[in-house]
Design a protein around this nucleic acid. Structure first.
Lengths: 176, 176
DNA sequence: CCCTTTTCACCTAGGTGGTAAGAT
DNA sequence: ATCTTACCACCTAGGTGAAAAGGG
């Protein structure tokens, strides 16, 4: 499934005439598993993290493009897909439920991206830079723990419009 | 709007490790305008062609890719879009209605595709080859002239499924 | 007990030909 | 008279949270 809200970034300082790949991966914040304590509305440590999963990378679909192209637009990662299926073969990013994660944005000069692949770790070294934003750390769930999150999603995600204005007309049907 | 059925090609003889763009353009077959004569079920010349339109090229969305990748798959042009609006700014291919056209497939070695653009003619010369298939010539219309074409489209295009099995249940509605 | 999966109605987004109205 | 456009019901394709069912 997709992330919502999606990560969106603006980039400056690229060489306008150089080609780049932009990619995202998602790394564990710590070595812990969490549970949500309802009465205190807090995430609490609930043991050690599950075993690591295969590394996956989301390569932004506009890649490769020139620095000029990347800098002209807001770069959105709304098509990135997550799964908790460790055997996934769709190229989705694999995460454990009930763990804390940090998304990272990678800017990769085209000549350094030869072994860039959705199923290999992001290359490191010359011509590759990584950026992460602490305010984007999140905790994975399979069911919402927090009504404020549910409200945010229903109010802001266009695909959830069916749950706004909820009471009326929702269960009427027509048998022809 | 899209073409249906779409052009689909298989390519062989590429260098597996060379990168290529694949593109399509659509060129006039002759300098004539046509009309359909119903009683004889034939297209007849009905004057000279309208004035030329801005050149457009559909660059296959998998471009660029290696010869190996291109040769492994059937290459479909089903996302290509046509319009009769000469002022189109969506990058669609512009055609006159009631004219005869021939689609062409272009194979462009990556290093020869530097000035490849949806709004410029396909480059020619070394590293660029064009292919056309006479059986794919077609005549443009804004309304179908021929019931066999209508039937083919309804029977084969998944989006037209609503017109199959036509009589039953089509006009029932439910007023809540 | 708590977490996960499945199924559902309800959306977004957009591709069909029919039909009636519009244009030349 | 003939071609074109705008609108419509009906599809495909797939993204929502709720609720029920499943699982350790």
């Amino acid at each position: 499934m997709r992330m919502f809200p999606a990560m969106r970034v603006k980039i400056s300082g690229l060489d306008p005439h150089q080609q780049y790949y932009i990619a995202m991966d998602i790394v564990p914040v710590d070595n812990k598993r969490y549970r949500y304590v309802y009465h205190s509305s807090k995430w609490m440590v609930a043991g050690n993290a599950d075993s690591p999963v295969p590394p996956r990378v989301y390569i932004h679909p506009d890649s490769p493009a020139s620095g000029e192209t990347w800098m002209r637009q807001v770069i959105s990662f709304d098509k990135l897909k997550l799964t908790n299926n460790e055997l996934d073969d769709q190229g989705h990013i694999i995460l454990h439920s009930m763990h804390k994660y940090q998304p990272r944005v990678h800017v990769i000069r085209k000549d350094c991206g030869d072994d860039l692949s959705p199923i290999k770790p992001v290359p490191t070294g010359e011509g590759v830079k990584a950026f992460s934003f602490p305010e984007t750390v999140f905790t994975t769930v399979t069911a919402y723990q927090n009504q404020q999150i549910t409200r945010l999603k229903i109010d802001r995600n266009p695909f959830a419009k069916g749950f706004r204005d909820s009471g009326r007309n929702r269960h009427q049907q027509c048998q022809l």
